[in-house]
């Protein structure tokens, strides 16, 4: 099996699976900041595997990659204990805040495109999200990039839905004020 064929296969798999793998790693990594490194290692292992042994026996590349990701998440900085306490007995996010959040996210704002084009400002906004507590970054990634509903995000992260909504809402409110969004 020639290198170009491997590369071609790898590129296709990479494009097709990146969202699923990143979603898995984002929600399972001990530290969100390690996610990129873990994803890096997942794909590196995968590439080495198909480079060494081919890919004919791989029925589902995504399932194969997720298995690698499980291993990487467990082994990466395993000495650290992630303590994420599940918040119990949380009442629902208030209807008013839910409505405000929905309205906030769906309102058409042409200015946002200009901000996206301003790479420096866009990166600052991203950094502001990621530099909050680690759960915020996970929530944003899983909800916005992986298109997971907030209750799915909550379930994935072992959090109460109300907590997820609160974190999302607070961060958006703070960014509104901080960056004039």
């Amino acid at each position: 099996m020639g290198k170009p064929e491997i590369d071609s296969y790898f590129n296709d798999v990479y494009a097709a699976t990146f969202t699923a793998v990143s979603r898995f790693v984002t929600s399972h990594a001990s530290r969100l900041q390690d996610a990129e490194d873990i994803i890096q290692n997942v794909y590196t292992r995968f590439y080495k595997r198909i480079d060494d042994k081919g890919y004919e026996d791989i029925e589902s590349a995504e399932a194969f990659l997720i298995n690698i990701a499980k291993f990487e998440c467990r082994s990466f900085l395993a000495s650290f204990i992630k303590r994420r306490e599940r918040v119990k007995n949380m009442s629902d996010f208030s209807e008013e805040e839910s409505a405000a959040l929905d309205a906030e996210l769906s309102r058409d704002e042409p200015l946002l495109e200009d901000i996206l084009n301003n790479k420096i400002l866009a990166k600052q906004i991203f950094d502001d999200i990621m530099n909050r507590d680690e759960t915020v970054g996970r929530i944003f990634y899983l909800h916005f990039v992986c298109d997971m509903k907030l209750d799915e995000v909550a379930d994935k992260l072992g959090l109460n839905v109300s907590t997820v909504k609160t974190k999302l809402y607070r961060t958006i409110e703070k960014q509104k004020k901080k960056f004039g969004l």
């Binding site: 990479y14 990146f18 990143s22 984002t26 996610a35 990129e36 994803i39 906030e104 996210l105 769906s106 309102r107 058409d108 704002e109 042409p110 946002l112 495109e113 901000i115 996206l116 866009a122 990166k123 906004i125 991203f126 999200i129 990621m130 970054g137 944003f140 990634y141 916005f144 990039v145 958006i172 969004l181």
Partner: peptide, 18 residues
């Protein structure tokens, strides 16, 4: 563009260096 799409773009662009 609404804010949902805005954050999708932001997070997709900068979270991981694909």
């Amino acid at each position: 563009m609404n804010k949902h799409d805005f954050y999708k773009e932001i997070m997709s662009e900068y979270t991981f260096d694909k």
